[in-house]
Design a binder for these strands. Structure first.
Lengths: 223, 223
DNA sequence: CGTTTACTTGAAGCCGCTCAAACTCAGTGG
DNA sequence: CCACTGAGTTTGAGCGGCTTCAAGTAAACG
């Protein structure tokens, strides 16, 4: 699937989630929009993530999953096995673990939107992207950003202009180096992590732990 | 348990959730605090709610559950049945349904904190309280508020003074009638719901649906 | 009655938003 | 090769909503 494609699912309110998706490669965003057009990105879906209920339950908002860059998404229809769903311990364990780690991620998101200022939010975002989809390139972590400034804004509860200004300050501070508007490298993950007062744990399946927030000798400067 | 009491649980990161709690009566709040003292209330726990993982996974923040008014909370320790946990279809179904409806509620919370303004947030909150813990008293819905202004602020990502001012405006507009600072009545749930651009579905176990957002003849006025 | 705690109200300030203009760059066609 | 286009981004100026700080009020309790 390509950028802009959507998975839009209107499951009946009372039907249990029977169609599931797994992101194999690429990246997608779970979105909600209010009647007046305001949009909130709820989650970034990356390889390995299980989309168990893309639409959630109806709450009067538009909900959909939006492909951010060329992706492979695998559909699993469990309707036939509906009755046996809860009889398979391995499957239920996977679903439960997935739901719980999603819940943990959402709690971090709530704290970010409720209590972090814009600079803290953007640092958390850059850190999250680096931890979840970054590749190590000679010490620095290289990240390819599939999101536009608008997308980032809608994920962080900000607007595109503010995001652009913040990224400018981060670039000036040397916390991240921008190779292009959609490609950056983090030379020092710990320095970035020090800007974020919440230590997020980002892998969906319990692999990566957050880097220890070690106190370094370098001095803090306002950015 | 009484107001101010806490359930503070430091479960090992890798141990599955073995101790659970059920709120039988009263009300509690799941909280997180940042190192500098900023606090975010993540969830309001009401009778019937299952606290499957009060502490979540460690992320560098303090996490706890705080009792808001005299409550009865029932502890269930499943450690002994640990290995059999995923073999009981009924139990896993309950856990899964609970996790999913919690997730849905958190998505609404994220939209609220990310994209609603302060007046919309407080209306959503009053509506949520009315739907989840209100009692019908001759047409109006009577709600007893266990939260202080500070608590409400920490739930909505605002501050106590702002909450106080907003409640003043709501009172003046007649959307809610305050019998005391912690007791109010909603004379017209539909009128209140019209102030909120997202139709939340608040019961944890799939009972109550959101009230239909019927267009009425009454004119909208700025409040 | 005084003390404490929570709530309310006011004035001033700042952060992030809105609106608008300039810039970058890939794509297109002459 | 250059000019043109259009979407995305950057930058600036000004505004407004929410916060901060501070003072004042109300209710609870010894």
């Amino acid at each position: 699937m390509r950028r802009g494609d959507r998975l839009q699912i209107d499951q009946a309110a009372d039907s249990p989630a029977m169609r599931h998706w797994i992101v194999v490669s690429g990246m997608a965003a779970s979105c909600k929009a209010l009647p007046d057009g305001r949009r909130q990105i709820l989650d970034l879906e990356m390889p390995g993530d299980l989309l168990a209920r893309p639409a959630g339950t109806p709450d009067g908002t538009d909900s959909w999953v939006e492909i951010l860059c060329d992706s492979i998404v695998c559909e699993i229809d469990l309707s036939a096995d509906r009755d046996k769903l809860y009889l398979d311990p391995q499957l239920t364990k996977r679903l439960l673990d997935d739901a719980w780690s999603r819940l943990d991620a959402k709690l971090v998101h709530v704290v970010a939107l409720g209590r972090l200022d814009s600079m803290e939010r953007i640092c958390l975002f850059l850190l999250e992207m680096a931890q979840r989809s970054g590749t190590d390139k000679g010490g620095a972590t290289r990240v390819s950003l599939c999101l536009s400034r608008d997308d980032i804004a809608d994920y962080l509860g900000l607007n595109a202009e503010t995001v652009s200004r913040l990224l400018g300050r981060i670039k000036k501070a040397g916390l991240a180096i921008f190779l292009s508007p959609t490609e950056y490298a983090v030379p020092d993950m710990k320095a970035l992590a020090k800007r974020v007062p919440i230590g997020a744990r980002f892998s969906r399946s319990g692999g990566l732990a957050s880097p220890p927030r070690v106190a370094t000798a370098s001095k803090e400067v306002a950015i």
